[in-house]
Design a binder for these strands. Structure first.
Lengths: 228, 228
DNA sequence: CAAAATCGATAGTAATACTATTAAATTTGC
DNA sequence: GCAAATTTAATAGTATTACTATCGATTTTG
């Protein structure tokens, strides 16, 4: 993966930031350390003032990159989903069998994240943890429809559409491809949250990913088998 | 439903409130109007000061019922899940066939909510909307493990366990009963959110509930049919 | 009818989520 | 290599939030 994507730059909708954080050293430090700080203290207690203190910069400087902490979260989420989309596209590249493609897609979307050294200033394992804990907060807001109009969630939606199409390719007659695609993508985050904080109702063991559950779910629902 | 549950009182874990809101007129007005106000302005912008103004009471009085707005949200959510649990229990009462029971359970857990006149000070339709929009925020916090220890989510967990048992009764060999139970309960809220705010990736029509999707999903996954 | 509980009003605090200004430092364009 | 433009840090300031504390007035209850 590292080799294949070595000259990849994740492109984020320009509406989300005021100044591209990839364009300067300070911007990269903002992204790098916001991931660590949000992971540490949670998004609700996270402030630009605290982040400024952590990176030895000033609160007001951070506001030149992002309008507010909400947009920073949307940025981090977009980055994560874009990165995931690349992994998915590369995983199924050159594979013809629709069932095998779907199988690999579920694998990418539900597996436990490991470090990708392509991006030196982003720790993907910590970022994934933030996505599991905080992603919902990026859209469960009163301005969600306005944010949506600005294209804040377009990468995520594109990913759902990709999975929906893979599902439809695997079974042309299935009626709920969009519902199922959303179930896998969002549900996978939820299952991983439960594993950490609601052990008594989680069906997963401490280091288990929900991959097998979702493969079983999808292939039984579609009435097909990936090993035919 | 109204008749069957007419002398039902929803019981909420006493750790969640400082003073039982059911024990006074002010308490009931707090619950009734917090539902309406959260629906109107969203949980993030909701404050006890605004609620006090709405019900002609004082901010400081509200703090005598709930430690903070987070606990009020946990209270409302517990009320909702408890009410849902009663509906589930009554729906499957006296039914012997495990498949029929599971079918009815999915129906209760995924259908669109309609008004229940049993509780005059609670609008269940608006409450359901709040649950769809804000429930995740009640557990996606840094104190989730402490809250969990206090029993804040025990009603919700009990409901998941009930569904898990119904799934297991319907198919003793199925390996992922907990994962599937969580998929139906939490996923159903998410599907309904998408229907309202992410139309382009939602598989549901404006007034459609995800009930048929989940019945198809569960029965195909378990390799059984509810009409045998 | 007295004691206890409840409620409303007021005041106060530390923190949040910003905005504005200005001056110093750095980058860039020629 | 220097002037101009840009970026950043520092400071100050504002309205709001999320509470806590106190103190009468009112209501409830035993």
């Amino acid at each position: 993966m590292q080799k294949l994507l070595s000259n990849l730059k994740i492109t984020i909708n320009e509406n989300i930031f005021l100044k591209d954080p990839e364009s300067s050293d300070l911007g990269k430090r903002i992204v790098e350390n916001s991931i660590l700080l949000i992971d540490e203290i949670g998004f609700d207690d996270f402030t630009f003032k605290k982040l400024g203190a952590k990176i030895g910069s000033n609160e007001s400087s951070l506001y030149r990159y992002f309008e507010n902490k909400h947009n920073l979260l949307v940025y981090l989420a977009s980055w994560y989903w874009s990165w995931t989309e690349y992994q998915l596209v590369f995983a199924i590249n050159n594979i013809a069998d629709p069932l095998k493609k779907l199988d690999l897609a579920i694998e990418v979307l539900t597996k436990t994240t490991t470090l990708d050294s392509t991006f030196k200033h982003i720790d993907e394992v910590v970022l994934k943890r933030i996505i599991i804990h905080e992603y919902s907060k990026s859209y469960l807001t009163k301005q969600v429809d306005l944010d949506n109009d600005e294209g804040y969630f377009s990468i995520y939606k594109r990913l759902v559409i990709r999975l929906k199409e893979l599902i439809q390719e695997a079974n042309k007659d299935y009626k709920y491809a969009f519902c199922l695609a959303n179930t896998v993508i969002e549900g996978s985050l939820h299952q991983q949250y439960l594993k950490d904080h609601f052990k008594s109702i989680s069906g997963l063991k401490p280091n288990e990913a929900p991959t097998e559950f979702y493969k079983d779910l999808v292939f039984n629902t579609l009435n097909i088998s990936p090993n035919e």
